[in-house]
Write a protein that binds this DNA or RNA. Structure first.
Length: 661
DNA sequence: AGCACGCCGACT
DNA sequence: GTCGGCGTGCTC
């Protein structure tokens, strides 16, 4: 009889010991009794003896033999992640597993013929790389047998994807595998197409949360067995087990989507860097506007900076960016005369124009003109947005919906007005102003139906659509050769956000959406509507000067004492009342370990969005000069908090390297 | 997190 | 008399 330590999906930072008739490999999935429940867990160790009295040790119910045990590299990687992010190991491990593997019923797997290796594939090397691309490929390609973190800093349209493809080709030639992470699900189809076209015969597994359960498991096992050569996915794919991982690529590495905001809070980008380090392989972080943390690491020489300064298509230049002073121009439905005229010109020339604004719905607010009542979410401290076509009010934070009231619930007045503008409203204004344009709206509402995005994407590419209003969704990574004008509406809001990361995000977003214009031979133009044309951020955007902008932001962060000048974490609490959440945090601070002044604890404060889905949320910021000091402090504090009993109705967790305040 | 046990209020 | 409120404690 053997003793096995099993990681289980429970919010307890402890492993659970069971007895087993025969020795079980570490990484073996098992079904075990747990209280009255039956859970699936993973064997992570073989303790010689257990602290649990022998009589209380229960036997495992079954070893789940429908797939090989998870590899040692995966076990140590998830262990590191759980320590770094202060998450219980079992909880983190089990959230990393595809949901299907958390069930005890055996997988019915299709027999995979060319399982381990040997399938024929080739690399189609069409449209030769530019000298800059070739240089980047050489530099990074020379480091494939060791760990190195590269920042591929390439302007929009500089052909980062081509560089990735060449590096992947070299890795596949060595018989190894590549992991490619992208920030959002809708970016996977076009990369998948690239891989299919350029690597005929190669197996590509696509992993993200919308994939069918069976496909996710197939892709996961394919990567683990080595039969899938390329894994393409969103942040969750960083946890894929590999047989022979040779390269990790994180595209648009600055993107906030790489940080999981609920459940296990991890940064897939940072974990990718760690994983590559542990595996002794290179990792490539690609961006036109790197995260300041990444940029700072590159400046310090911890990451290797590889630059692509020019667009890859011969003759293509960077778009001309201008600000349009809203105080000096006539405005129609939020659109300046200058922008409308520019759209006119593009449509007349048979080119395409994009109006960008990052706000879904018809209007962000519905208010009563008589008494000042504003439609709000019943579960969140937020206004509900007007969705006119569906005749619904919708909370963009929790999804709460209601009908649009006919009259004011407070005073009965029928004078209810939408305030502000969302994509739906701009779409209506553009439809009225350009009745002959072939107009499309692209946001997560209009693209909700399956296949809708792929269809619209194709229609934009082939010119069936020539005027687009869209959000974020359109800003990243897409290549529309006929698109020569981008108009940015309502960017100013972000200039005055309290979040210290707001300028960084706005800068990235503006350069990114600007980058959609003029990627082919046609010259691109970008018009940013603003009431603050002199603002330094817009000055830097116009100059396309990321380095200058990043330098001054880093100075400011250093002066103000924010990341990356210091290491940060939050202790977050959620409760039904604000006072309970704040009270818990005050109590927790009183029991924090003594760190000899090397760690700073701030006062607990409500979060910016203080109530979300019925929970009052608050947090306490922790800072330290050195990462290691912060890590040791958090580990000790966590064990103290776990030893105490948490007041009823309060939930808490740590958020290491937070990006949301 | 579940899921039990346990001790006090309004109903068939 | 019981059904059920949620406080407390445990899960190898």
């Amino acid at each position: 009889m053997a003793i096995v330590a099993v990681a289980l999906e429970v919010p307890i930072s402890r492993l659970f010991d069971y007895s087993a008739d025969e020795p079980l490999a570490t990484g073996q999935r098992v079904s075990v009794p747990f209280g009255r429940r039956q859970l699936v867990g993973v064997v992570v160790g073989h303790p010689a003896r257990s602290d649990v009295p022998a009589g209380q040790l229960r036997p495992i119910t079954a070893a789940l033999a429908d797939m090989p045990p998870l590899p040692a590299e995966w076990l140590s990687f998830t262990e590191f992640a759980s320590e770094y992010y202060q998450q219980p190991r079992g909880e983190l491990m089990m959230t990393a597993l595809p949901p299907r593997l958390k069930r005890a019923t055996p997988l019915r797997r299709k027999p995979v013929l060319a399982e381990a290796s040997g399938q024929a594939w080739s690399f189609v090397c069409d449209r030769t790389p530019t000298p800059a691309q070739a240089g980047a490929i050489e530099t990074m390609g020379a480091a494939l047998d060791r760990n190195a973190t590269f920042l591929l800093f390439g302007v929009t349209g500089s052909g980062k994807t081509e560089v990735y493809l060449h590096l992947i080709a070299r890795v596949l030639e060595q018989g190894r595998q590549a992991l490619v992470l992208v920030p959002e699900i809708h970016l996977t189809p076009q990369l998948q197409r690239h891989f299919a076209e350029r690597f005929p015969g190669a197996r590509v597994a696509v992993l993200h949360s919308s994939r069918a359960a069976v496909e996710r498991v197939e892709g996961w096992i394919g990567a683990q067995s080595g039969s899938a050569q390329i894994v393409l996915g969103t942040r969750l794919a960083v946890f894929t087990p590999f047989a022979r991982l040779g390269l990790v690529i994180v595209d648009e590495e600055h993107d906030a989507s790489f940080k999981q905001q609920d459940g296990s809070r991890y940064s897939a980008r940072d974990l990718a860097v760690y994983r590559a380090h542990a595996a002794g392989i290179p990792v490539v972080l690609g961006s036109a506007t790197p995260a300041l943390e990444t940029w700072s690491n590159a400046l310090k020489g911890r990451y290797n900076l590889v630059t692509l300064a020019e667009r890859a298509v011969p003759g293509a230049t960077m778009p001309r960016i201008e600000v349009v002073d809203m105080r000096k121009d006539a405005i129609e439905h939020g659109l300046t005369g200058r922008l409308l005229a520019a759209i006119d010109t593009r449509l007349a020339r048979g080119e395409q124009a994009l109006v960008f604004l990052n706000r879904r719905g018809y209007a962000p607010v519905l208010a009563c003109g008589a008494c000042g009542w504003v439609a709000s979410c019943v579960r969140c401290s937020a206004h509900t947005a007007v969705h006119l076509k569906e005749q619904r009010l919708r909370c963009h934070h929790c999804g709460y919906e209601s009908v649009i009231p006919r009259n004011c619930p407070d005073c009965g007045n029928v004078d209810l007005h939408p305030f502000g503008r969302g994509t739906e409203r701009i779409e209506a204004a553009l439809a009225a102003r350009f009745p002959h344009a072939r107009l499309a709206r692209v946001d997560s509402d209009s693209m909700r139906r399956k296949g809708e995005w792929e269809r619209t994407h194709a229609e934009i590419r082939d010119g069936a659509i020539n005027l687009i209003v869209g959000t974020q969704m359109l800003a990243k990574g897409h290549d529309f050769p006929g698109l020569t004008l981008v108009g940015v509406v309502n960017a100013d809001a972000a200039l005055f956000a309290t979040d210290y990361r707001a300028p960084e995000r706005l800068f990235a977003q503006l350069l990114q959406v600007a980058g959609r214009a003029g990627r082919a031979r046609l010259a691109g133009e970008v018009l940013v509507q603003t009431r603050y044309p002199e603002h330094p951020l817009y000055r830097a955007v116009i100059a396309g000067d990321f380095a200058g902008f990043a330098g001054s932001e880093l100075e400011e962060r250093k002066r103000a004492g924010f990341s990356p000048a210091v290491a940060e974490a939050l202790l977050r609490a959620e409760a039904s009342s604000r006072s309970a959440a704040l009270g818990f945090l005050r109590e927790a601070a009183a029991h924090a370990p003594d760190a000899n002044g090397r760690v700073t604890l701030y006062d607990p404060v409500p979060m910016t969005l203080s109530r979300l889905a019925g929970w009052e949320r608050a947090h306490l910021l922790v800072q330290a000069r050195a990462r290691g000091v912060l890590q040791r402090f958090l580990a000790e504090w966590r064990s103290r908090l776990e030893a105490q009993r948490t007041p009823r109705g309060v939930r808490w967790h740590f958020d290491v390297d937070p990006i949301e305040f």
